[in-house]
Design a protein around this nucleic acid. Structure first.
Length: 276
DNA sequence: ATCGCAGCCTGTACGC
DNA sequence: TGCGTACAGGCTGCGA
C-alpha cells in the first residue's frame, strides 16, 4: 500500500506535528517478528529516553535518527500505518508497537497484516545503500537513468518495482507512470528508444510529485488502507489514470482500460495508448 | 542476470 | 446468512 508518496506524506506530517525534539519515555512491542532480531525487552531498553533528532524518507523507509547515534528504519510494507494519538487512547488490536512521547502523545504502529518491519541500527547505510536512486532527487540524472534503463533486459514493470534499480515505486505508481509515458509494462527495457526512456523519466517524476501533492493514495474505505498519522485519508485516488480502473474509458483516448498480470502483479493499461 | 514461486499475515469482496 | 475462494498497494529467499 504505501509507496514513495505515501511514505513522504507520513514523514512530512510527523515533522509538522512536532515529533522532532520529542523524547521517547517508553517503548513497547507486542509482535516479536516485527522488531527481530531484537527482543521486546531489548527494543524497549534501547529506545527509552532517546530523543528524535531527524525524520526523513529514503525509498519506502521512514528514517528516524535518534540523538544517541542510533537510527530507526520503519518499513510499512502492505498495511503499516503510523498513528499519532493521545496517550490514554485505547489500543487498537492491530497496533503492535507503541512509543510514548514526553508530550502526552503516543506514536503507534498499526499493521493488520504484520508484514512491516522496524529496524534499529547504528549502520542504516548497510540497508539504505543497497537501494537505487531517489527519483525526485536533483541527483536523479536523466541521461544516467536512460542509459541504465536501456542496459537492462527485463520487462519494464518488474524493473520499475525493483528497489535496487529505482527507489520508491510500487504497483500503483509504476502503472501510472507507464500510462503517462505511453509504454507497455511488458516492454523489455533495452528495446526502448532514447525518446521513450526520456518520457518514462519525466512520467515517473510527474506521478510521484502529484501523489505527494495529493498526500498519497487511499483506495477503498477499509481500515487497512493508507492513513496519515492524524487519521486522514490521502486524496490521490481521484487522480489515478489506470490503476484499478479496469473497464473505464481511458482519459486520453477513450479505449477501455485492461487489467493483466505481469510478473505476478496486477497491471493496468490502456491497450491503445500502450501498445505491446 | 532474470524468472517464478512460496511464504510472511489478515481482511475484504464475491460467487453460490 | 454462511461458506469457500481469490485477491490485496511489499519484499525475501530459494531453485532453475
Amino acid at each position: 500500500m504505501p509507496e514513495l508518496p505515501e511514505v513522504e506524506t507520513v514523514v512530512r506530517e510527523l515533522r509538522a506535528d512536532g515529533l522532532i525534539g520529542r523524547s521517547i519515555t517508553r517503548a513497547q512491542a507486542f509482535w516479536k517478528p516485527m522488531i527481530a532480531p531484537l527482543t521486546p525487552a531489548a527494543f524497549a531498553a534501547q529506545l527509552k529516553g532517546r530523543r528524535v533528532q531527524a525524520i526523513q524518507r529514503r525509498a519506502k523507509y521512514i528514517v528516524i535518527t535518534l540523538a544517541n547515534g542510533n537510527t530507526l528504519l520503519i518499513h510499512l510494507r502492505m498495511t503499516g500505518q503510523l498513528n499519532l494519538v493521545r496517550k490514554g487512547a485505547p489500543r487498537d488490536p492491530h497496533q503492535h508497537i507503541v512509543l510514548c512521547l514526553d508530550d502526552g502523545r503516543d506514536l503507534r504502529y498499526r499493521d493488520t497484516r504484520k508484514f512491516g518491519r522496524w529496524i534499529l541500527t547504528r549502520a542504516p547505510d548497510t540497508i539504505l545503500g543497497r537501494l537505487g536512486p531517489e527519483p525526485l532527487s536533483e541527483h536523479f540524472d536523466r541521461k544516467v537513468f536512460i542509459s541504465q534503463l536501456r542496459s537492462r533486459r527485463r520487462q519494464l514493470k518488474p524493473l520499475l518495482l525493483d528497489q535496487t534499480f529505482l527507489a520508491g515505486l510500487g504497483n500503483i505508481y509504476a502503472d501510472e507512470a507507464l500510462w503517462d509515458a505511453r509504454l507497455h509494462p511488458g516492454r523489455v527495457a533495452s528495446t526502448l528508444s532514447a525518446m521513450e526512456a526520456r518520457r518514462l523519466h519525466g512520467a515517473i517524476r510527474r506521478v510521484l510529485r502529484r501523489g505527494i501533492q495529493n498526500k498519497g493514495t487511499t483506495l477503498g474505505s477499509g481500515k487497512s488502507n493508507f492513513k496519515r498519522p492524524g487519521g486522514n485519508r490521502g486524496q490521490n485516488q481521484a487522480g489515478l489514470k489506470v490503476f484499478r480502473r479496469t473497464g473505464v474509458p481511458c482519459l486520453r483516448c477513450g479505449k477501455s482500460i485492461r487489467r493483466m498480470i505481469i510478473s505476478q502483479r496486477a497491471t493496468h493499461i490502456c491497450p491503445n495508448c500502450q501498445p505491446a
